[in-house]
Computed example of a mutant assay.
Amino acid sequence: MAQAASLVGRAGADGHEAEALSMHALRLAEKEAHAAAVLARARRSPGGASAEARRQACGPAAEVITAAARVLDLAEGVRPDALVATDLAAAAEAARAAATTAGLSIEVHSGAPTPPEVAAVTTRANRLTTAIRDVVVTLS
C-alpha cells in the first residue's frame, strides 16, 4: 500500500496526502506483522489460537482495506494521461491486491465472508484501469 500511495503522489495527487497515506501504510505493515506474530505464538500454545487472537489479527487487515480505498480516492482525482498512466494503473492494481489479500485474511481468521468493501475496491480499481486504458488508446 505504501508503494501505491507513493505512485499516486508521483502521478499528481495531493503530495502531502499521498505521503501521509504512504506512511500510514508502512505503519499498517508493521501492525500486520505484529498481529501475525501474535497469532503464530497463539497457534503454538496449548489449545491453539484463541478466538481473541484471530479477531485481533483481523484488525490490521480491515485497516488495509480502508487504506486501499483511500489510495483509490486519491488516484481517481488525477486526470490520467500518457505520462502518469502506468503509475496510476500500478497504484490501482496494488490497491486491489492489498484489499483482496486483506479480505482473505479476515475470511480465514474470522470465518466470516470477505468484507463487501473488498468488492467495492475491486470495482473501483477496474473502473480506474479501464479509464486509463481508454486514455492511452486515444493517445496512440
Rank of each mutant, 00 (worst) to 15 (best):
133 R>W: 03
62 A>I: 08
138 T>S: 14
40 A>N: 12
77 G>S: 02
76 E>L: 06
86 T>D: 13
131 A>S: 08
24 H>W: 03
94 A>T: 04
39 L>A: 09
62 A>Q: 14
117 E>P: 03
7 L>D: 09
25 A>C: 14
86 T>F: 09
14 D>A: 08
64 V>I: 15
70 R>L: 03
128 L>I: 04
44 R>N: 12
60 P>K: 13
138 T>D: 13
81 D>K: 06
62 A>P: 04
60 P>D: 11
72 L>N: 07
68 A>T: 10
129 T>F: 00
24 H>Q: 08
5 A>P: 02
136 V>N: 04
64 V>K: 11
72 L>E: 09
85 A>Q: 04
90 A>R: 15
25 A>F: 00
64 V>P: 02
91 A>C: 01
111 G>M: 00
10 R>W: 00
29 A>T: 12
6 S>M: 03
54 R>S: 03
86 T>H: 09
66 T>F: 08
109 H>A: 05
7 L>I: 00
34 H>S: 10
59 G>N: 10
109 H>D: 09
114 T>M: 03
129 T>M: 03
97 A>Q: 11
75 A>F: 05
29 A>C: 04
65 I>M: 12
36 A>E: 14
29 A>I: 08
113 P>L: 00
75 A>N: 01
47 G>I: 07
129 T>A: 00
137 V>C: 02
13 A>E: 06
107 E>S: 07
59 G>A: 11
106 I>M: 05
101 T>Y: 07
114 T>I: 10
70 R>S: 10
68 A>S: 15
2 A>Y: 00
138 T>Y: 09
64 V>A: 05
127 R>T: 07
53 A>M: 11
43 R>K: 15
69 A>S: 15
38 V>D: 13
115 P>E: 02
116 P>L: 08
1 M>R: 01
121 V>L: 05
131 A>C: 01
25 A>Y: 01
115 P>V: 04
18 A>T: 07
123 T>I: 11
48 G>W: 14
40 A>D: 15
89 A>Q: 14
25 A>R: 02
120 A>P: 05
12 G>Q: 13
92 A>V: 01
126 N>E: 15
82 A>T: 15
39 L>T: 09
76 E>H: 05
8 V>I: 02
20 A>T: 09
83 L>A: 15
5 A>Q: 06
94 A>V: 01
7 L>E: 03
100 T>K: 13
28 L>W: 11
49 A>Y: 11
25 A>G: 03
8 V>R: 02
112 A>I: 00
68 A>H: 12
82 A>S: 14
36 A>V: 08
67 A>D: 09
32 E>M: 10
108 V>L: 12
5 A>D: 01
127 R>W: 08
39 L>H: 12
26 L>W: 02
98 A>Y: 02
44 R>K: 14
68 A>V: 09
133 R>H: 07
97 A>S: 13
112 A>Y: 00
86 T>V: 08
51 A>T: 11
25 A>S: 13
43 R>Q: 14
80 P>Y: 06
129 T>E: 06
78 V>R: 01
119 A>Y: 06
104 L>T: 15
19 E>I: 01
75 A>I: 05
10 R>G: 01
6 S>N: 04
105 S>E: 14
129 T>P: 01
134 D>G: 07
30 E>S: 10
89 A>Y: 08
48 G>F: 13
130 T>Q: 07
56 Q>I: 09
120 A>V: 14
109 H>C: 06
30 E>K: 10
63 E>P: 13
7 L>R: 10
